[in-house]
Design a protein around this nucleic acid. Structure first.
Lengths: 184, 184
DNA sequence: ATGGGCATGTAAGTAGTTACATGATTTA
DNA sequence: TAAATCATGTAACTACTTACATGCCCAT
């Protein structure tokens, strides 16, 4: 199956930070890129096979039989730069939360309120997690650190925006509930 | 082909606001839900066929031959409420901008700067568009309006967060460029 | 020795997009 | 009357996920 440019970019990029196994790469993507990117096993291994075939990554032996460390070759770095330079694909958003709120009249104000509270909790948890990541990134003086910090900052701003929105949204829902009650 | 619950929800929801043709529904989804939802023709028509088969929507004749207005039936409203009550599917994020910035060391600080500036422009445009939408929603005294307002507010908070982040990010990139220059 | 985590890979299925084909109606 | 727009629908394709199959290695 064809492997998309997007997936190749994530795989080459991940391996460019440090050579590792496919398994470790998947954990790396889930744990450090998870806030804004996702790849599944079913994408990663075919991508590794393709990139190896094209000489963009190479397999290094490990002590453990049946496993290998993948490292980006000079050609792979070149390819990564080309991929990164492509314009980001326009996103096709699918925000289940906002879709439900949009049709909130059918869902009911109480359920909407609960959805907002859930989003609030998630944003609080994200913010806590990001503060840990920020400390790590700030302690890291590698050349990658300043760029990684940009993505941490994006997560923080987004989470704080969610908290501020949740506050306003609960306000609207409360006033709306009060107005509905008056009509009854 | 199977039509996902998500698509059925968007289609039923859209038609619940007002009966319309499939074509108009697609425009409605693109123009009013576009900030947080997307559906393509290839999904909408099969969904309409399925929902009609199940008696959840009905086809009303129009003057124009070969076209029909679709309206939600009582059973369709019931189904919509069930779908809305399902927990939102966890998002699989794919933010091409943040992925590129994460590997910004390979992309280069100048290109990163340009990406941030582009995001800033888009956020400004979004904010301007949303202020128009907000006026419309505030003037609308239908029962749907307060819920639609919640999604408008979410868009506004997200856009303002992007602007604030862009400011900080340009700062980081500038300081980083200055630091790099000192080393040369 | 066995259960759990590390590791690689494939197959089947799902979801969604794009491009195409067709025709009606309106408008310039 | 020609072009643009409204309208419906399908087929081929792309991308991605999930579940499964397999085996290694370490700790208990």
């Amino acid at each position: 199956m064809a492997v998309s440019d997007q997936t190749q970019m994530a795989v080459l990029g991940g391996l460019s930070l440090a050579p590792m196994t496919g398994y470790a790469l998947r954990e790396q993507i889930r744990d450090t890129l998870g806030q804004f990117w996702s790849e599944s096993f079913g994408q990663i291994y075919p991508a590794l096979a393709l990139l190896e075939r094209d000489g963009l990554i190479e397999r290094r032996e490990t002590v453990r039989s049946g496993s290998s460390i993948f490292a980006v070759t000079p050609g792979g770095v070149q390819r990564l730069r080309e991929l990164l330079a492509e314009a980001p694909a326009p996103e096709k958003p699918r925000n289940g939360l906002l879709l439900r709120l949009f049709f909130g009249r059918q869902l009911g104000a109480d359920a909407c309120r609960q959805l907002v509270l859930d989003a609030q909790s998630r944003a609080e948890a994200d913010l806590a997690g990001l503060s840990t990541v920020r400390s790590e990134v700030e302690a890291d003086d590698s050349a990658d650190a300043p760029f990684i910090l940009l993505t941490v900052m994006a997560g923080e701003h987004a989470a704080r925006a969610t908290l501020a929105w949740a506050h306003d949204a609960l306000d609207v829902l409360e006033r709306q509930a009060a107005a509905t009650q008056r009509l009854q």
